[in-house]
């Protein structure tokens, strides 16, 4: 053992390196703090990997929880893509009253183009409608067999604004034209699709809220068990003056890792699901002559999912660790 003199030398050398009052103040430069955190981060990771079975299980549960709302939102963005594609060819058909002459019909048709909300208007006379129809059904001589033409004349419009609400408003306005007897809007089913889409959106949000809550419990419980396992250690650290947040740091990393890993696994599972669906959907899509392809997996969404997982993991760990560490008294 050293004598007091040796100790004093030691002390003064130390004092030069760190100020005397560094006892209670953290003597942290940024690089030192980074070094400290790197060490905590690594040891937390090592701890997680030392129990691969339960760590993997927790990660998997987090991933599946995140996957469900992610898939719903993915489905919805696909539905919206379908809507957009079909909206471009929304059509309104105006059936004219029986007594309206061809010249009056043309006049009405041309007058519609003076506004800004209609991009094309095509007048179809009753005769042309009948011949088109018979050509379409393959009964060329239908025109001769019928003594009177049962079909009305019509005007086919393409609206400039194809959004279902705008189309509906336009249709209502057109109803006021005296020559018009009936209006048919092709986009009624699009409106239904849009309603379904917003319903899915609401369900997705509600599910997300439930999942976030559930994840808080899952991660919180995992952290609680980890704290329980290190109770003696925590007690000792408290005895020598460690703050709750000092003790919590490794657990925050644990929560962050679980969130990150869960988010990444969720992305992977989502990609697998989408690829599998795209494969079986390709045939169906070809039937509809659509250029449509399932989307929902892009880098932005993947990053968002991982970020969400990480944020939930970290926050849940913070809440759980502070609560459970506080409960431990020496």
């Amino acid at each position: 053992m050293r004598g007091p003199h040796a100790r004093d030398q030691q002390m003064s050398r130390d004092q030069r390196a760190t100020p005397r009052n560094s006892r209670s103040v953290s003597p942290g430069s940024a690089s030192r703090l980074a070094q400290v955190h790197r060490d905590i981060a690594l040891s937390s990771l090592r701890r997680m990997l030392s129990t691969p079975g339960s760590s993997l299980m927790t990660t998997f549960v987090i991933a599946v929880s995140l996957l469900l709302p992610a898939l719903l939102f993915g489905l919805n963005s696909n539905l919206n893509a379908v809507l957009r594609e079909f909206q471009d060819n929304a059509r309104i058909t105006l059936y004219l009253e029986e007594g309206v002459t061809n010249s009056r019909g043309l006049e009405v048709s041309e007058s519609l183009l003076t506004g800004t909300d209609i991009s094309t208007a095509v007048y179809i006379s009753a005769d042309q409608a009948l011949s088109d129809f018979s050509a379409a059904v393959g009964l060329e001589n239908l025109t001769q067999e019928l003594t009177t033409n049962p079909l009305p004349a019509a005007i086919v419009l393409t609206p400039n604004n194809a959004a279902p609400a705008a189309v509906a408003a336009l249709a209502e306005r057109l109803q006021a034209i005296p020559e018009v007897s009936l209006i048919q809007v092709d986009s009624v089913w699009l409106q239904r699709l849009e309603a379904i889409s917003s319903l899915i959106d609401v369900i997705g949000r509600a599910l997300m809220a439930i999942v976030v809550l559930g994840l808080f419990f899952i991660v919180g419980n995992t952290i609680k068990l980890a704290i329980e396992n290190r109770k003696d250690e925590i007690r000792v650290i408290k005895l020598v003056g460690g703050t709750d947040i000092f003790i919590a740091r490794p657990f925050l990393y644990t929560g962050l890792y679980f969130g990150l890993a869960g988010g990444m696994l969720a992305c992977l599972l989502q990609a697998i699901v989408l690829i599998a669906f795209n494969f079986s959907l390709r045939e169906l899509i070809q039937l509809y002559e659509s250029s449509f392809e399932l989307r929902g997996f892009d880098i932005g969404n993947a990053l968002l999912l991982i970020l969400l997982g990480a944020a939930i993991g970290w926050t849940a760990a913070l809440l759980a660790s502070l609560r459970h560490i506080r409960a431990i008294n020496p």
Partner: peptide, 25 residues
């Protein structure tokens, strides 16, 4: 540990830790 709690990195605290261990042999 007490130095770590005050924000020292373990390696940095080395000199003080060894001095303390030296004192108790």
């Amino acid at each position: 540990l007490p130095l770590e709690i005050c924000g020292y990195h373990r390696q940095e605290a080395g000199r003080r830790v060894r001095a303390a261990l030296d004192k108790v042999g």
